[in-house]
């Protein structure tokens, strides 16, 4: 699949398909930073997956309600204390972890409330990002589409960074998929050639 010419919606669908592939039918999912609820809607329509979204942005919450997605408006950075232990099969953070401050706490909490977690994020060490920095500029790419002065992202990390943090937190990496800018699966040196990374995580 060539992603360069794809619309944002089509790129989203690609992400959704990767995530949906990992989550069994009829599972219960908590989607953190769920945006307008498109992923949960996709999971509901394609795999009969029920769940809740958590979102802080007002317009996104409105989008969720329009999408008939159960959304809870709250700040994930304040923790997930209202959510019971192991009350979900999966918790998902789709391209939202980089916009949250309490990274360690969120990762730990995810595996408290759910059996497994699915995390996707833009890999800051992707080849074109490295090139941008080598040229003295903050990278702007399809997976990091914001100028530095308007980005909602607050954490910039790489596949290697993320895996080191998982190790530190005692989180098991059950599966990893990295894709380049053209949407092709990268197996060799994903930290260099992977633009977007997907992880399926569990407890060690």
């Amino acid at each position: 699949m060539n992603l360069r010419k794809l619309t944002k919606q089509e790129r989203d669908r690609f992400d959704f398909a990767v995530i949906a592939d990992w989550i069994p039918r009829n599972n219960r999912v908590l989607d953190l930073g769920c945006g307008d609820g498109s992923l949960l809607r996709y999971l509901r329509e394609h795999k009969d997956i029920s769940g809740y979204g958590v979102e802080i942005d007002h317009d996104s919450v409105l989008g969720c309600i329009r999408n008939n997605v159960d959304v809870i408006q709250m700040n994930i950075d304040h923790g997930l204390s209202g959510f019971e232990d192991q009350s979900f099969d999966y918790v998902v953070i789709s391209q939202a972890l980089q916009a949250m401050l309490a990274t360690e706490r969120i990762l730990t909490e995810m595996l408290r409330v759910a059996r497994e977690a699915v995390v996707s994020f833009p890999n800051f060490a992707y080849r074109t990002n490295r090139e941008a920095i080598a040229n003295g500029r903050v990278p702007v790419s399809e997976d990091l589409p914001y100028e530095w002065y308007e980005t909602p992202n607050v954490r910039f990390f790489t596949i290697a960074d993320f895996e080191a943090l998982c190790d530190k937190l005692g989180i098991a990496i059950l599966e990893r998929r990295a894709f380049n800018n053209a949407g092709q699966l990268v197996t060799e040196d994903p930290n260099l050639d992977g633009s977007l990374a997907f992880y399926r995580l569990g407890r060690k």
Binding site: I65, V71, M74, G82
Partner: peptide, 15 residues
């Protein structure tokens, strides 16, 4: 909201 969540009821919450 969280009491409903414990009961797995459908709930949307806007602040």
């Amino acid at each position: 909201v969280f009491a409903l969540l414990k009961n797995r009821r459908r709930v949307a919450y806007a602040e």
